[in-house]
Design a protein around this nucleic acid. Structure first.
Length: 187
DNA sequence: CATCTAACCTATTCAAGGC
DNA sequence: GCCTTGAATAGGTTAGATG
């Protein structure tokens, strides 16, 4: 409707003047082949909310990183309207409350297992975050290799971290901030 | 240039595991 | 039971490719 008067983002690509590296901040754009797209779309039409197993299978099938598939489904859901079938209903009824309806079990596929970071891994992540909360693809991959996790996990970790601990531009910090700050400075 | 869409973002919610 | 936080979501932005 109306343009945002000012965009408050600056994406943290500022210090590229200093960085001589800085080939590119984001990962290079993936080009899916028609065959890959066909399989992706086909799967999407069947289940727009695939679980981890399905995404892994897809990744193998079309020889693409699972994180790319995740992103593809995110984008697809955002831009295309899709059939809302059983998964959606299961999604809604699953945690609101399940009085006595085990009828539609196993509709929702399991998500990826929760990663547990060691204290040294967390230490490295937090250190990197303090240096730059918006690492580009190169930094993320370097860090991922350093601590022995996938780059996708690193990216998610930074997203969560920024959302919860970094952005102080929220309205009223109040006492919640104090608690979080303690945690954030923990390491 | 316009269009499409991968990559990326924030904000919020789901949920596993620890206390 | 509640808290922390990784995973997933909705919805929006940025930017590379292509006509």
């Amino acid at each position: 409707m109306f343009e945002t008067p000012r965009i408050s983002f600056n994406m943290a690509q500022k210090d590229s003047a200093n960085e001589t590296i800085s080939t590119c901040q984001r990962r290079s754009r993936t080009k899916f082949t028609p065959d890959q797209l066909k399989i992706l779309i086909d799967t999407f039409n069947q289940k727009p909310y695939p679980g981890y197993a399905t995404k892994q299978k897809l990744a193998l099938e079309i020889n693409t990183e699972e994180s790319r598939i995740q992103i593809w489904f995110q984008n697809r859901r955002a831009r295309h309207s899709f059939q809302r079938t059983e998964p959606e209903q299961a999604l809604e009824s699953s945690q609101t409350h399940r009085p006595d309806a085990p009828a539609v079990t196993q509709v929702r596929e399991a998500r990826r297992c929760r990663t547990t970071y060691t204290s040294s891994q967390l230490c490295a992540l937090i250190k990197a975050f303090k240096k730059n909360p918006y690492p580009g693809i190169d930094s993320r991959e370097r860090l991922a290799k350093e601590i022995g996790v996938s780059e996708a996990r690193v990216q998610i970790w930074f997203q969560n971290r920024r959302s919860r601990f970094y952005d102080q531009r929220k309205r009223e910090p109040a006492e919640i901030r104090g608690k979080i700050r303690d945690k954030a400075q923990g390491l």
